[in-house]
Amino acid sequence: MTQTAQTDAQVLVPLTTPEEVDQFLQDYPLAAVFKAGTCHKTMQGFGVLETFLQRFELPVGYIRVVDWRPASNHVAQLTGIMHHSPQLILFQAGEPQFEVNNWDITPQALAPVFQAHVPPRAEAGSVATDDNVEPYRRLMRAFLDGALSEWAFQDQYVNLFRDDASLRSQREFDLLSRLFGDPDAYHGGLHQLGAPQARGDLKERVQALLTELG
């Protein structure tokens, strides 16, 4: 496959082996590799990237590091760039041009790079991200039905969110993070998040979120 100036759909390719990494970089002279980790940092980082992919034409290969470690190690060997996850590396003609990692994957970091190196789309595009919000829906329904107390719901929801490494859209990330804010606060104990009602009526907010998720 040869890269063209415009394509109808976002190219989002799983790279599970070193050979697939090499083929992807050969097929797409201008491309990026996104390394996905095992927690919500991946979800947040990909959400930021997704907003740019709607407006710019950039094929992306993604590596789920835990599952496809040889592919991840191959990228590190090719580039000489220390592994992080999440991690975004921009390639041109097979050579790394830019990298950004972890919480540094922000609109402020990506904007000048995309504007300088990546062609804009003729029309806004869509990205086929992971569609697996059902675990959140089930948890919210259980709480609204009275099967979970406020504290039990907060505990389970924050743990689910903290360990979620899905490739989600920015919209989904923003919606799912709205209930309890930064899940890293949970590492020191649930009390650090405060009472479940601290941000207003919890049932009302959960019902509103469930409605928005559809």
Rank of each mutant, 00 (worst) to 15 (best):
M1W: 14
T2W: 13
Q3Y: 12
T4K: 14
T4Y: 13
D8I: 10
L12H: 04
L12M: 11
L12Q: 03
L12D: 03
L15K: 09
T17Q: 08
T17I: 11
P18H: 07
E19S: 11
E20V: 01
D22M: 01
D22Y: 00
F24A: 05
F24N: 04
Y28A: 02
Y28M: 05
L30N: 01
A32Y: 09
A32F: 10
V33Y: 13
F34V: 07
F34Q: 04
K35P: 03
A36Q: 11
T38A: 14
C39N: 12
K41Y: 01
T42M: 07
Q44K: 15
G45V: 07
V48P: 02
L49Q: 04
L49G: 06
E50F: 01
F52A: 01
F52Q: 03
L53Y: 07
R55C: 05
F56R: 08
E57Y: 05
E57A: 12
L58N: 01
V60A: 03
G61E: 01
G61S: 03
Y62A: 00
V65M: 07
R69H: 09
A71T: 07
S72Y: 12
S72R: 02
N73Y: 13
A76S: 14
A76K: 14
Q77V: 12
T79A: 11
M82F: 12
H83R: 00
H84N: 15
S85D: 03
P86K: 04
P86W: 06
P86G: 02
Q87I: 06
L88H: 04
I89Q: 06
I89H: 08
L90F: 15
Q92V: 02
Q92C: 02
E95P: 00
Q97T: 11
Q97S: 06
F98P: 05
F98W: 09
E99N: 12
V100G: 02
N102E: 14
I105L: 07
T106C: 08
P107F: 04
P107Y: 02
Q108W: 09
A111R: 13
V113E: 09
P120E: 10
P120V: 13
A122H: 10
A122D: 13
E123Q: 15
V127M: 14
T129R: 06
N132C: 08
E134Y: 14
P135I: 11
Y136W: 05
L139H: 06
L139R: 02
M140H: 06
M140V: 11
A142C: 03
F143N: 03
F143V: 08
G146V: 11
A147I: 03
L148V: 09
L148T: 07
S149L: 01
F153L: 10
Q154K: 12
Y157L: 08
V158E: 08
V158M: 08
F161T: 03
R162L: 15
S166I: 01
S166H: 14
R168D: 00
D174L: 10
L175I: 09
L176E: 09
L176A: 08
P183I: 05
P183D: 03
D184C: 13
Y186T: 00
Y186M: 10
L190T: 10
H191T: 10
H191S: 15
G194F: 11
G194V: 08
P196A: 09
G200Q: 05
D201W: 03
L202R: 01
E204T: 15
R205S: 12
R205A: 13
V206L: 09
V206D: 07
Q207D: 14
A208H: 10
A208C: 05
E212T: 14
G214V: 04
G214C: 02
